[in-house]
């Protein structure tokens, strides 16, 4: 065994690991749950499940389209399928998710690891920066992107308890712990995790930690930023966004995703229908990724805390220009 290569990132405090471990803990509670894998269990956290419940892991091989549609069939006969894979390859099975899960309204869960720039050195081909937009556009599909391991574990339980199709992002890199055990994840609800009145920073996934850092940077200049963790992108928490628009008058959205169609778009759709206010968007500006370490890439594509803080200043300036 000592000659075995170390699998990069298969241990540690990543969202995928939190997901894999949470699944194991939920096995008895959800006896119909089966986990579907396309030969990437070692990378999605599903290796924990494979070890604990090999008889409840269905191996599809490198054939995501068949896996996704078969999940529809499994759900149709009363199983609770959890489709797992890398985000970019699950996009390959988008049409299967649309027809055999979404349109057929199957109680199937799709959980994607390796979303966004988080994939790092594997490069642009592997970086799914459009998955939220794509899955959000499927009628009835709930879309979730948790921010830390605790929230991921809670979201894993929540999506299994929830009746209906869900797409959830996890993550590859070690993640910062943002929440304690008292954290409460609820599908469709965002939370104010830092109070402030000058601007609201709305973020999901890895960008929540960066938004908190940005708030610290802004505080140095006496700008009091509110930070909202928005783990459910669909259905978006319109009530909370309305309140934030009312109380802070401007917003910034931050996501590890194209600025078209993801969290920023979902926030803008809700805010413009309720109480319009200036919004700045932090995310990939309609481009593909490239190779590099995740933190380097975040810097390169301008989604780190200083860029969120700069966007906040622009949003505040626009708000003040309006008043």
């Amino acid at each position: 065994m000592s000659d075995a290569p170390a699998l990069i990132g298969s241990s540690g405090d990543s969202l995928r690991e939190a997901f894999g471990k949470a699944l194991v803990g939920l096995a008895d509670e959800f006896p119909k749950m089966v986990v579907l894998d396309a030969d990437v269990a070692g990378g999605t956290g599903v290796h924990h499940w494979r070890k604990a419940h090999p008889e409840r892991l269905i191996q599809f091989g490198i054939a995501e389209q068949n896996m996704m549609a078969a999940a529809g069939g499994l759900a149709a006969v009363g199983m609770l399928p959890v489709v797992t894979g890398f985000a970019c390859f699950l996009e390959r099975a988008y049409e299967q998710a649309r027809l055999s899960i979404g349109y057929a309204k199957r109680n199937a869960k799709i959980v994607a690891s390796h979303p966004g720039l988080d994939v790092g050195p594997d490069g642009g081909s592997a970086q799914a920066l459009e998955d939220i937009a794509a899955f959000r556009a499927i009628p009835g599909m709930t879309v979730i992107s948790p921010a830390d391991p605790i929230e991921t574990a809670q979201a894993t339980r929540a999506i299994l308890e929830f009746e209906g199709p869900v797409y959830m992002r996890t993550g590859r890199s070690p993640a910062k712990r943002l929440f304690g055990d008292d954290h409460v994840f609820e599908i469709g609800k965002g939370q104010i995790i830092r109070h402030g009145i000058d601007v609201t920073l709305v973020a999901c996934g890895v960008e929540v930690a960066r938004a908190l850092e940005a708030a610290e940077l802004l505080a140095e200049d006496d700008i009091n930023a509110r930070v909202v963790n928005m783990p459910t992108i669909k259905p978006i928490d319109s009530d909370l966004l309305r309140r934030c628009a009312e109380e802070t008058g401007c917003m910034v959205t931050a996501e590890d995703h194209n600025i078209f169609g993801g969290l920023g778009s979902a926030v803008a759709e809700a805010v413009t229908q309720n109480l319009p206010c200036p919004i700045e968007f932090v995310g990939l500006r309609d481009c593909f990724g490239t190779s590099g370490e995740p933190d380097e890439l975040a810097e390169h594509f301008q989604i780190t805390a200083p860029f969120i803080a700069a966007a906040a200043r622009r949003a505040i300036a626009r708000k003040e220009g309006l008043s």
């Binding site: 389209q65 069939g73 499994l74 149709a76 199983m79 027809l99 055999s100």
Partner: peptide
Amino acid sequence: SLGQGFSVAVGMALG
């Protein structure tokens, strides 16, 4: 959408 029904049937048989 051709191909999908077959996969769904495979999923049913597995389940």
